[in-house]
């Protein structure tokens, strides 16, 4: 909340004839990026290392948290509610003020980049909510995803449509009119349009039905098998670990357990605490 907000409180903000709260932004787009540095030898493809920090001047939410993903792998972040799963992902994406730690991608230190520039550096990010342009058509959504590209995007668009045939049929329909699962597909497709080096998904299955969830997981596996590393935050720990090459269990903003999905599922403590026996 800014200064002036605290001044006028909620006054007048309900009056639709003067203010339009629809689609208002929250990310500070005016933050300038700093320089990038060299990565460390032997780094994974993407790593957020020893990250500590919180939002603005608020208290730290992450404590020395490390998340990494290798090429061709699916890495998932799981944990109880309020463990800082989404926060960890946002930290990697640059939406958090890190006090400590660094983020390195493909041999470059990108800690000082703002989110917009991280997209240009090769990150594809799918937010948990508000992840489409509802009044624009599916095709336009994908086109906007490829906004930073100046080359021919038709091939990429066809690849996305091949991956998600259900939304291909509705390419000229407004994305906001689609079902919840289809909207998520559009959201993932939008992020793929930059041909990113890594795909980051913040709870892609939140609020969709189990059948749609399975289908979405299938698609995500297909993306990863195609060679693109995928990092995702998941609420459904069981399913997530089933498909994960690597899983991070966070508790109160710190790494509690790390291992392959199979290892963690075999771990008694993890099973007891997070997987309900």
């Amino acid at each position: 909340m800014s200064d002036a907000d605290s001044t006028f409180g909620n006054r007048g903000n309900r009056d639709a004839s003067v203010v339009n709260p629809h689609g208002r932004g929250t990310i500070d787009g005016s933050r300038k990026s700093g320089p990038t540095g060299p990565g460390k030898a032997g780094d994974p493809f993407l790593i957020g290392e020893n990250m500590s920090g919180g939002y603005g001047r608020g208290p730290d939410i992450l404590h020395d948290c490390t998340i990494a993903v290798e090429k061709g792998e699916i890495a998932v972040i799981v944990g109880p509610n309020g463990a800082g799963k989404s926060t960890a992902m946002k930290a990697i994406f640059g939406m958090l003020d890190l006090r400590k730690g660094s983020v390195r991608l493909d041999g470059r230190d990108i800690t000082a980049l703002n989110p917009q520039d991280r997209v240009k550096a090769g990150m594809g990010f799918v937010p948990q909510v508000n992840n489409i342009f509802p009044s624009m058509t599916v095709e336009e959504n994908l086109e906007m995803g490829a906004f930073i590209r100046s080359d021919d995007i038709r091939e990429t668009m066809e690849q996305v449509f091949e991956l998600f045939p259900a939304v291909a049929e509705k390419r000229r329909q407004a994305a906001g009119e689609l079902s919840g699962g289809q909207r998520q597909q559009v959201a993932v497709g939008r992020a793929l349009m930059t041909r990113p080096d890594v795909l980051m998904l913040d709870e892609p299955t939140a609020g969709v039905s189990p059948i749609v969830m399975d289908e979405l997981f299938d698609r995500i596996i297909a993306i990863a098998r195609g060679g693109m590393p995928v990092l995702m935050v998941e609420q459904n720990a069981q399913q997530a670990m089933n498909i994960a090459d690597k899983a991070y269990v966070l508790v109160q903003g710190a790494n509690a357990h790390t291992g392959t999905g199979q290892e963690l599922m075999a771990n008694d403590e993890v099973r007891r605490t997070f997987l309900g026996g």
Partner: peptide, 15 residues
């Protein structure tokens, strides 16, 4: 139009 629809996503799309 994208900015009007969703400011944050437009920013993240490089607009």
């Amino acid at each position: 139009r994208a900015y009007s629809d969703n400011e944050d996503l437009a920013l993240l799309s490089g607009i």
